[in-house]
Amino acid sequence: MEPPIYYSKAEFIETDTGNKVSRRATIAGPQNIILGGKTIISSGAIIRGDLRRTGPGHAVVISLGRYCLVGEGCVMSLSVTLSDRPPYKTYRGNFNYYPMKIGDHVHIGANSVVEAAQIGNHVEIGKNCVIGKFTIIKDCARIADNTIIPPNTVVPALSLFSGSPGGFCRFVEDLPESTQEMVEAQTKQYYTRFQPLDR
């Protein structure tokens, strides 16, 4: 078991379902965001729930599953800015933002910008990544650090992507079938390691 990661108790708000949200994260339109439980949102993260579909009533803009982490490794750093915002386009002449769905056990690294339409379960996204609009990332995929994924890409299940458009190859290799169990164990362990420090 690795050593715990401490955070100051005053900085984070813990909800009944075990979500830990930093007070230093920028969360716009919180009524449109669903957190699945045991999800950590680090300081400096920006989550845009205000960019919603037009129309009456409530609209879920961003839904995150269980054991997710937004902005890993930036717990101590203030300069980190990470952004999670839904994608937009015009359809039949109407402009709209579209909802974003993120599955369980998803880790998103520090400084990444995510505008995906859908992210499956057990996905790992590295640091400094840019995930283009309407990208679909399937289950158990991994995105290496500093990767730029162009808009409308589909990342297949159990694949590792890296590089940037105009650069070298984007698909690197297939991941082993044990990825699901490994990522699940890893994210659960991260949540247990993430402990408050009274002071």
Binding site: A28, L51, F95, N96, Y97
Partner: peptide
């Protein structure tokens, strides 16, 4: 698209910010 985007934001942003 740009014009509609700006139009949408002008309407929506003041509701939440």
């Amino acid at each position: 698209l740009r014009r509609k985007h700006a139009e949408y934001l002008r309407e929506m942003l003041p509701k939440f910010n």
